[in-house]
């Protein structure tokens, strides 16, 4: 197995602003498949800071192998995500390390699997699973090259995610600015005037009111503003 110069070049050519994050991630999975000639399919699982995971596949079979591991909570990918280390499934049938995952995977034709941790800034951000199901002649994985690919892919994915976060924030800020409703701010001001207090106290006061009324901040703000007309 060789990591082609092409694969290396393309990983370092990822423009974070050209595509949506998920499309960039799919490109990385596709690139892994085309970069290793012993690899027949790729599954990639990415985990974000909130623990939510997203999956990417190059084909249905790889998707099924990933799903099997998740279903049995057993297999190289599961162990890799847990520990941040490389794990594999060797092309042998005796002495299986993955008692739940290996038998059904073997029946489905899997010969070998290599799960590579994706690590950026010290945190495990996912796992890249290389699957092999050749009819004959599996040559084995070049673990070091595969590890280098995963390390470079981790950097590209983490960078693309950093940029994607800025775009989410921009959309959110634009939406907040576009919404004409400033009821919460007005309620903060009204509370300041009514109770002759500072903005900080007024902000806490409105949050307490929302709690007391078992309502949202918006609901509490409406009640404050409505009460202005009462006196």
């Amino acid at each position: 197995m060789t990591w082609s110069e092409g694969g290396r070049t393309q990983l370092s050519e990822i423009l974070v602003f050209e595509k949506a994050f998920d499309d960039t991630a799919q490109d990385v999975a596709d690139l892994a498949l085309s970069s290793f000639d012993q690899c027949d399919g790729v599954g990639m699982q990415l985990v974000d800071a909130d623990g939510l995971s997203t999956r990417f596949f190059t084909d249905t079979r790889s998707s099924q192998f990933d799903a099997l591991q998740e279903q049995f909570d057993d297999g190289p990918c599961v162990a890799c995500l847990r520990t941040g280390e490389q794990y594999d499934l060797e092309p042998v049938t005796a002495d299986e390390r993955w008692p739940s995952f290996a038998p059904p995977a073997r029946r489905a034709g899997l010969i070998a699997c290599l799960a590579l941790p994706l690590i950026a800034q010290g945190a495990v951000i996912g796992a890249l699973n290389l699957y092999a199901w050749p009819v004959v002649g599996f040559q084995g994985w070049d673990r070091q090259t595969a590890g280098n690919f995963a390390a470079r892919a981790s950097i590209s994915l983490a960078s693309a995610r950093v940029y994607a976060r800025t775009q989410v924030l921009i959309t959110d800020l634009r939406a907040r600015i576009a919404s004409a409703d400033d009821i919460v701010d007005r309620a903060h001001g009204a509370l300041m005037a009514l109770e002759n207090t500072s903005l900080e106290v007024a902000i806490t006061r409105l949050a307490d009111l929302a709690d007391e009324q078992r309502s949202t901040l918006d609901g509490a703000a409406h009640s404050v503003i409505d009460s202005l007309g009462d006196d």
Partner: peptide
């Protein structure tokens, strides 16, 4: 935010 807060003060 600050314009909304000032409006609220004037309203009250």
């Amino acid at each position: 935010d600050v314009i909304g807060q000032a409006k609220g003060i004037i309203e009250a």
